[in-house]
Design a protein around this nucleic acid. Structure first.
Lengths: 248, 248
DNA sequence: GACTCTCCTTGACCCAGATCAAGCGCGAAC
DNA sequence: GTTCGCGCTTGATCTGGGTCAAGGAGAGTC
């Protein structure tokens, strides 16, 4: 019912929305031309699986719009989300055949994919790509390690506040809304997905969301629409040092 | 009481014990010669801090021998280890001034350091270094994500079994002891360090170690000397799928 | 041999968050 | 309209691991 060749997105890298943040960010115009030859777009509906852990993956790519998640599952069904992929984030690992995690579209999703073999060849010839990929991977490693602190040592309330502040911050940086005052956004995750991210049950997520609402840390309209009246208050609840160092 | 220029380690990269696994693994002889000019060795005693989170870090480097750990700390003192650095692992981030974590010598430690600025310059000129660093960073990201599953979803017993199996496996791959039968090693971590790694308290670590011993999953001589009579049994206790995919 | 210090073990008790269970709200299908 | 189903909330109860507390084992020092 979908997955016909998706043309609504610019075939032209020049006016791609993630042009300046994705793995191609440092490429020159001529380098982009080579990339355009091996790239293609794919769309997924919310809930669809992009690749299954262990499956052969013959492409790598960037999230253009929407959100995807990386998930690990144990045999008995326990699952842990290990990555949240926002627009411009990179999917796949050059130099490895199988996917290491399930990649699932959390919202409707558009990806810009490159066939793996030609992409690997290009990485060797085009230092701009390898450099940018290294930088992005180091950033993801930092994020993963920050998340280890959340998973290992924070309380349920702090975990929720941490997740909200991350989403709020990333969202704000996309919308470039400078107004520090009140942040407003729609949660892109179900309570269950939040639980999988935070190593909690969905009941605990729900209870803590209600508690943060009751205490005025957040405002909720419906289940997903969130307003943060005071970001520093939220960061305090997250247990982060004062104003979080505003890393980009 | 130490830190005099340490000369007991080969100044010569040619017979360096981590030559083929570290960031310099892919370098040619002439590239090594350039590296030798900007490298120097530093030694640390067990317990010493290599760098404090937030401090300026004007070098990057490799662990030559011993074990170091990356640790994050919250204001109230809760700490989480976010990385365990074994020989050949890389420390520091090119392109960033401050250290993101505390780096602590868990055992006596020798590092091969490079001044950061010249190293960064070399990375641009020597693709072999950047390529290897990307590969290592991707491996660390995978390890961090595997650890997120441990932290988020495993029970205390499974966490301990996971840590033991990781140490056993890495240790076995260093010693290239092909004998799958019984693995024997010394724990390089105190109970407290294990707790910091696993998001537990040291009491729980101690209790679960005793339980695994009581159940015959491990044998303990003293507090640190561990024998694994049956690795597959341990992996089962860790909740890992059968024989763990033997990744190197 | 006694003292001390660090690392570890073990017990008793408690609580945050898991589990089990019931029900609400709302959009889609008919 | 009614029904269904999904995502979510809330309550009642249970429990794994945290917390508090009291030692034990071994190595180093005097």
């Amino acid at each position: 019912m979908l997955n016909e060749p998706t043309l609504q997105h610019s075939q032209d890298c020049g006016n791609c929305p993630i042009r300046h943040r994705a793995v191609c960010a440092r490429c020159e115009t001529d380098e982009l031309e080579v990339l355009e030859e091996i790239k293609y777009y794919r769309s997924f509906e919310a809930g669809q699986t992009v690749v299954w852990s262990g499956d052969k993956m013959d492409f790598v790519g960037s999230v253009v719009s929407g959100i995807a998640s990386l998930t690990q599952t144990m045999e008995d069904g326990r699952t842990q989300m290990v990555g949240l992929l926002l627009p411009s984030d990179f999917v796949g690992r050059p130099g490895r055949d199988g996917a290491a995690y399930d990649v699932v579209a959390t919202t409707d999703l558009v990806m810009c994919c490159f066939r793996k073999k030609p992409f690997e060849r290009m990485m060797l010839e085009t230092p701009h790509i390898a450099q940018r990929l290294l930088e992005m991977t180091l950033d993801e490693l930092d994020a993963a390690r920050e998340w280890m602190l959340v998973l290992g040592r924070k309380t349920a309330r702090e975990k929720i506040a941490s997740l909200l502040s991350i989403i709020a911050r990333r969202d704000a940086s996309l919308k470039l809304s400078g107004a520090q005052g009140t942040l407003v956004f729609d949660l892109p995750l179900t309570r269950e997905a939040m639980a999988d991210y935070l190593g909690l049950t969905l009941e605990t997520v729900s209870r803590q969301m209600s508690a943060l609402k009751r205490d005025g840390v957040i405002l909720l309209e419906g289940k997903r629409h969130v307003t943060i009246p005071d970001l520093s208050r939220l960061l305090e609840e997250a247990g982060d040092d004062s104003d979080g160092g505003m890393m980009v």
